[in-house]
Amino acid sequence: MSITIIYTIATLSVIGTSAAVILYFVAQKFKVYEDPRIDQVEQSLPGANCGGCGFAGCRAFADTCVKAENLAGLNCPVGGNETMGKVADILGLVAEKKDPRTAFIRCNGTCDHRPKTSQFDGASTCAIAASVYGGETDCQWGCLGYGDCFDVCEFDAIELRAHLGVPLIIDDKCVACGKCVDACPKNLIELRKRNPKDRKVVVACRNKDKGAVARKACDVACIGCGKCEKECKFDAITIENNLAFIDSDKCKLCRKCVSVCPTNSIIELNFPPRKIVTEEKEECTTEK
């Protein structure tokens, strides 16, 4: 009995030791040299592997940074300037300063504003619905509400709001990786400059139809009247194809355009309330 135990232990030890020796030599033989700084850079990255930088994960980004001669064009949107500063320190380079950004869905066509005129009955993804037709409402530019953006977001920064028909981006969680921007077949999502307290003044509409058509489809559609463009003192607003656009890099958040917009398609967010408190949106169920 005890002999068996001894034999067992002995054989296993021999096998183990020889395997270790073989592995050691194999590892030596096939060793690949890697710049140790890649590991250091990777350590300083957020490690979300979101691909927001345009590379296949954090390691690929770290690899590119180490090999790059300067950091121009390389930016980790999740970590922002702080992380890029650390990366720059490790590599002895200078990082570009970039304004932090946040994503915004430029559509406010919730079901109370945009009446439903047809019923989509295919696989519930925005991409498939968009390939079939303009959407359940008469606005072919607006949000479809099936949440392709929600599906790709790895930071839980999007709330689906199926009952309203338009998702909401939660600024606190959004890291501006840009995945939702690519996922939206209607091209509604824009990465805008992040202002203090996440304040923003945005044209929440992408409708390029003529005013009357747009207005008929949705009562908060931009009709391209141009009032906001005239009102803006900072040249932040441009009108193209019956649609106003506020450049978030130029906007000074004066909010004058908000009050002149006849259709309330320009919205202000996260400002202290003005005289009237915005009323709670009525819930209306849309079938997902």
């Binding site: 295919g122 696989a123 991409a127 498939i128 390939s131």
Partner: peptide, 12 residues
């Protein structure tokens, strides 16, 4: 199952 819906999407 909506096979063709997804296949068409994949094809595109």
């Amino acid at each position: 199952r909506p096979l063709l819906d997804y296949i068409r999407y994949g094809k595109a």
